[in-house]
Design a protein around this nucleic acid. Sequence first.
DNA 1: GCGACAG
DNA 2: ATCTTGTCGC
Length: 238
Amino acid sequence: MNENTTHYDDLNLAEAKEIQNELRDKINLDPLISPITTIAGADISLNRFSEIIFAGIVILRYSDLQPIAYSMVESKTSFPYVPGFLAFREVPALVQALQQIPVKPDVFMIDGHGIAHPRRMGIAAHFGALTGTVTMGCAKNILFGKWHEPGIQKGDYRPIMNKEEVIGYALRSKFKTNPVFISPGNRMSLNDSLDIAIRCAGNYRLPEPTRRAHEFVNLFRTGKLKEGYHELTPQLLF
DNA sequence: GCGACAG
DNA sequence: ATCTTGTCGC
């Protein structure tokens, strides 16, 4: 009903697939030209069996990867989790969180895949196409495509392939841990997504933007953070 | 037909 | 995704 709100509940999978095919034309994978000053991590958290979802976006300074602000939203979804259609469940809440942010981050790293998806429309590509933002996906598990185990050193990577086409990378973000799966979503190239993920790799398996988003949204779900947009004072918290 | 299958 | 204690390896 609200023209400013995205509604995906009540869609069947055939209709959802049509929307993916339609949104795919808006995806742009040209190399990123503008420099990155801020990068955001986006994630969702929920209680088991609940329709209430907690969405969060954490903005970090790209120079030192320290959190400087966050936006939290509590919402509801009835769209079920179906592999290949994650965006229809999580994107509406993430868009709400985005709308609360006064100065938009330069890049969004979203928990899930970008174009490493059966129809090239993972949640990061979907969110990017819908909002016109620069996005990439960072997933903990593969959804689509073939890949080989990267070397065990931090920074080692191997391509995710669909036939002869590279659609992303399996990246060893930390020494001797399982890789994460990186792919561009919108307005950046395959190489950009890999470079940014490597640059954001810290001392944990999850790159900092995704790790912080996961951390903050869980604090929000458990009542330790308030809903809305908030800025972090220079030497405070964490 | 069978297996795979983001969060 | 979330529920959870111990346990194995570095």
